[in-house]
Design a protein around this nucleic acid. Structure first.
Lengths: 342, 342
DNA sequence: CTGAAAGCGCTTACAG
DNA sequence: CTGAAAGCGCTTACAG
C-alpha cells in the first residue's frame, strides 16, 4: 500500500504538505494541492487511520453500545446511525452487551477503553455505577439514546406524554374499560419506559375520572408471542373483559390482535388496540399507534455527537449537553373505534 | 491516560518487557510479569489500539458489510457476529450499503480501505467488479456470508436443497396444486437465493411429476406486506387457486397466512403454507418452515475469519478458503396438512 | 506557503 | 529473560 511518503515523493513535495493538502487544513498553494491530489490518485493512496488517529488523537470512529440488535427498535436505530455516520466518513463500532455477563464486562472494561473512539452512543442501557464511571473516564462525548444516563446528553421520546395521548384517544372514543400491557425489564435493558408509560396511562385515566382496574395492568416481555399469551388470558376471563388495550410496543400489539382474533372477537368492534412504535407491519394490521421513528433517532444521536465534537473533533470548553425530547407522531388506523353499543 | 511508559516506570522494567508481559508473547520472568500486571492494574492501563495496530499491523477489528440492518436475517447475523467477536476481544465495525449510491461508494472506496481492519465479512451482497477488486486489494481475509463472491471463502445455506425439501414436504402431504412466492432483488442485495430456491421448487415438482402452473410462480419484496398483497390476489382468482404455497421467507409466509385468513379460508385445511427462515414469530403462526439460524451463521463467519487469521493474525501462506454449506433444520408445525378432500 | 523534525504509543528484531 | 532502538504512518508546532 502506498504511504504518505510515496505520495510526497511523486508529487515533489514534503509529507507535511501532503498531509495538509489532503486534510484541507493549513495553507497549501493551488499547485501543490493539485500535484498531491494527482499523485495520491495515481498511487491509489488511502490514509492509514491508525497512524492518523495516533498522531492527531481523532479516530473518526464512533462507538455504539446496544443491549441487543435483533429487535425492531434497535435494528432501526442502528440502521439510521450507520447511514448517517458512513455518510460523514465516520466508522461505527458496534458493541452488544447481550449474552453472558463476562461479554458485557469485556465491553466496558476493555473494548470501549481502547482509545479508538471519538465518542460513544448508548442505547436504552441501564448502566451500573462502575460502568458509568468507566464510560466517563474515556473523556469523550457521550450521548444516551433512550435516556437514562445521569448528567449525560440524552435524546428520548416523552414516554409519559405518549402513553397519556394514546389513552386519551381511547377515552375520547368512549372507552372506559381500558387495559394496559407494559413491558418487563429484559436484556438488562432499562426499558424504563414501562414505568413512564404506565404513569401516563394512569394519569390520563385519572383526568377522565375513570378508575383503573388493577387486574388489567399487565406485563409482557415486549415480544409478540409473550403478549399473545397475556392477552389471551385477559380476554378469556369470564368475569368480564376490557373493551380497549394500550400496548407499550407495536410488536406486543400484534400479539394482542392475534389473540383477540383467535378468540373470535371482531376488531375493533369488540376490542380496540393501540400500540406505540410505528412498526412497518402496523399498516397490515391496521394498527393505530404512536410512531417514534427509531431510524431518525439514530440519525439524531449522530448529529448530536457531531455537535459535541465540533469541527476539530473536540470542543474546549465542552458545550452544554442538552436533554431533548424526540418528536413522535400519532398514526390513526383501523384498530381503534368506539366500543360496541351495550 | 496511563501509557506503557508509565507502567514500565512503575514496574521497574522496560517498555519492551511491559509489552511482552501484557501480550503474553515472548519470554518474561514470573517476577516481571507480576510486577507489570500490578502496575498496569494500579494505573488503570489500557493499551492504545491505534498504536498497537500501527506497530504490529494487527487491528483486532473486523469489518462487516451488510445491505441493510433492519431486516430479520441481517439483524440476527449481526447479533451472532458481534457477540462472538466481542467475546474474542475483537471490535466489529459495521458498514451499511443501503441508501444512496454515494454512501455505498464511500464504504468501498474509502471506509474499508483505511487499514483498520484485519478482515472483512460481507453479507449477501452483490458486488460490482470494481467493488470486488477494491475488497481484494485490502489483502485481508474475506468471508462471504450468503455466498456470491467468486473465489472467496463462503458460508451459505443450500438454497436449492432447502426449497426442494420444502416442496417435497407439501407433495408428500398430497398436494399437487402448489404455488411459489419468491423474492425480488431488493436493496441491491443479491438475494440470489430466489433463483436457487425456485430451481429447487421446480426440481421437486418435476421429480413428483407434477406440472408447475406458471401463474402460481410469484414474486414479492421479502416483506410481509408485499406478500400479503400478492397472495390475496393469488387466492382470489376465480379460475381456481392452489392448495399449498412455499414462501421464500417466513416474513412473506406470515403475509400469506394473513391474506388467506382475511379471505375466510381455514388453515391448513383450505391452504397450507411453508416458509424458509426460522423466524421467532413462526411459532405463534404455527408456521412450518426450514430454519437457517442466522445468528449461528454470523458466529460461523467469525469462526472462519479466525481460522483464516490464525494465531498471529495472519497465515503465510494463506490456508485454502473453503466453500461451506451451513446446516438447516426442518421445523414441522401446524400450517401444513393434507389438502381438504375434494 | 513549505519543510525538517519531534512525537503519538506501541511492537519487535537485535544483541546480550 | 531483558533492554535500547528503530520503525509503524501519520500530524503539527516551529522556523523560515
Amino acid at each position: 500500500m502506498a504511504s504518505i511518503k510515496d505520495v510526497a515523493l511523486r508529487a515533489g513535495v514534503s509529507v507535511a504538505t501532503v498531509s495538509r493538502a489532503l486534510s484541507g487544513k493549513g495553507k497549501v498553494s493551488a499547485a501543490s494541492r493539485e500535484a498531491v491530489a494527482r499523485a495520491a490518485k495515481e498511487l491509489g493512496y488511502v490514509l492509514s487511520y491508525n497512524a492518523s488517529s495516533l498522531a492527531s488523537g481523532r479516530s473518526r470512529n464512533i462507538g455504539i453500545v446496544v443491549p441487543t440488535i435483533s429487535r425492531w427498535y434497535f435494528a432501526n436505530v442502528l440502521q439510521g446511525a450507520t447511514q448517517e455516520l458512513n455518510e460523514r466518513g465516520y466508522d461505527l463500532t458496534l458493541y452488544n452487551t447481550s449474552g453472558e455477563q463476562r461479554h458485557r464486562d469485556a465491553v466496558f472494561q476493555d473494548l470501549l477503553m481502547r482509545q479508538r473512539l471519538d465518542a460513544v452512543i448508548t442505547v436504552t442501557l441501564k448502566l451500573t455505577a462502575p460502568e458509568l464511571h468507566q464510560l466517563r473516564a474515556i473523556g469523550k462525548p457521550l450521548v444516551a439514546l433512550g435516556g437514562l444516563l445521569p448528567e449525560v446528553s440524552t435524546i428520548r421520546v416523552d414516554d409519559f406524554n405518549i402513553a397519556s395521548l394514546a389513552t386519551e384517544h381511547l377515552v375520547s372514543l368512549g372507552h372506559t374499560k381500558i387495559a394496559f400491557l407494559g413491558g418487563a425489564d429484559v436484556f438488562n435493558v432499562d426499558f424504563n419506559l414501562p414505568a413512564a408509560r404506565l404513569d401516563g396511562f394512569e394519569y390520563a385515566l385519572d383526568q377522565a375520572e375513570i378508575t383503573v382496574n388493577p387486574q388489567w395492568l399487565l406485563d409482557a416481555d415486549f415480544t409478540t408471542a409473550g403478549a399473545y399469551q397475556k392477552v389471551r388470558s385477559l380476554l378469556s376471563n369470564p368475569r368480564g373483559r376490557p373493551t380497549a388495550l394500550l400496548c407499550a410496543s407495536d410488536e406486543m400489539a400484534f400479539g394482542a390482535i392475534m389473540a383477540a382474533r383467535d378468540l373470535g372477537l371482531s376488531l375493533p368492534g369488540d376490542f380496540s388496540v393501540i400500540g406505540i412504535d410505528g412498526h412497518e407491519l402496523g399498516e397490515l394490521y391496521g394498527l393505530t399507534t404512536i410512531a417514534q421513528h427509531p431510524g431518525a433517532q439514530g440519525e439524531a444521536a449522530v448529529a448530536r455527537i457531531m455537535e459535541l465534537l465540533g469541527e476539530d473533533g473536540y470542543r474546549d470548553p465542552p458545550i452544554p449537553a442538552p436533554d431533548q425530547f424526540f418528536p413522535t407522531e400519532f398514526v390513526l388506523r383501523t384498530s381503534t373505534a368506539p366500543p360496541a353499543a351495550g
